[in-house]
Design a protein around this nucleic acid. Sequence first.
RNA 1: GUGAUCGUAGCUCAAUGGCAGAGCGCCUGGUUGUGGCCCAGGUGAUACGAGUUCGAUUCUCGUCGAUCACCCCA
Length: 424
Amino acid sequence: MARIQAIRGMNDVLPEQTPVWRYLEDTARTLFEQYGVEEIRMPIVEQTELFKRSIGEVTDIVEKEMYTFDDRNGDSLTLRPEGTAGCVRAGEEHGLLFNQVRRLWYTGPMFRHERPQKGRYRQFHQIGVECFGFVGPDIDAELIILTARLWQKLGLAEHVELQLNSIGSADARQTYKTALVEYLSQYKDQLDEDSQRRLDTNPLRILDSKDPKTQNILVEAPEFADYLDDESKQHFAGLCAYLDKAGIAYVVNPRLVRGLDYYGKTVFEWVTSSLGAQGTVCAGGRYDGLVEQLGGRSTPAVGFAMGVERLILMLETLDLVPASLHDRADFYICALGEGASLYAFEVAELLRDLPQDVRVVTHCGGGGFKAQMKKADKSTATFALLLGEDELQQRTITIKPLRSDLPQKSLSLEDFIKSVPQML
RNA sequence: GUGAUCGUAGCUCAAUGGCAGAGCGCCUGGUUGUGGCCCAGGUGAUACGAGUUCGAUUCUCGUCGAUCACCCCA
């Protein structure tokens, strides 16, 4: 009797959880509309090549974390590990990026074959925004201001910190990378194992190594700020000016780098200490080279993605989920006897006909009033409607308030329906 | 991919190399038409597979899964 289970790291979102998910999604959606950001929906599967070309061949994501398989016709396909590549592909394919500006957002599942732990799953969800065609730092600032407003709305503002950095132009990064490798190579033996490996693969990553000895060596390392190109410097200064004016606090973290190859200039992360090891809840940056790299015309771009599971985890641990989210019924209709049950359905449909989207649960499955009332209580309904022989004969409704001490009363069906708008 | 801890009822947890317990939940009754509180009764479990043993839920191994951390990342 081996039961079939969900795939490791791929979670069901149960009815108790879905209201929180919707709360987050709705809040974000409303906010995006306030900023003129349009929704786009992309497929979950893309050609493997798309991710190799955008994320970078030597990144961990591409090397060992992608769900890649051959289609029946032999094409190599991959479950998307992130949203940016697909968004660029779609925008490019449909001419959305040609000679114009765009603000786009999307949400959905992403897939990475990692070992699951708190705030990290194999199927996880992101809400992302990507903006195309804007060169200046104003759009970078706007995106950060947008996210800050989202934390405000969700009550998370006190629990997240904005970290900011500029990783400069590709040339500046290359020059710095060479200098860093040269410096670190002197101490190669003293570096931790992972950092020794990264010396060849991704030296910038060594900067945020957690190993104390490595951190010690880094104290004397060349500073990236000294290698930053003038254009990136100005861009960064411009961004900071916008943020200062908007009153948004940030920490410049010179060690902040990105795991994906396509970033340049602005990078930022919103981090929290309330989630354990997975502290990043939202991260993004500028990627001016990506569109061209994927075969399009050179187009400046900047974007970010939020980790939905991580944000929900935060809302739950910090007890910031509004209790009202779990209210899901206005009326629970109890009926005793066959005739009354038919009457109950009639009443229920009349209620649902009303213009204000009344939420009605009819009791199905029989049983006495006592059992039905228990269900009514559990249903979160504000009122129980009791229909028995008397009500059926007289075409009346007995209304019992469940969340207050007000007495129950009986009304004619017609009067009841009329009074519903005042009741809710 | 690496390491540590761990899998007992729908949920949270007990216990034992020899009949597996509780609380919550759920069902019924205490009210032939009334929820919450209370009382009584009922329901229901050792992840899967091998091994050791007279006997394994307990000991060993494997598989699957969970949790936390590393790695990586949202």
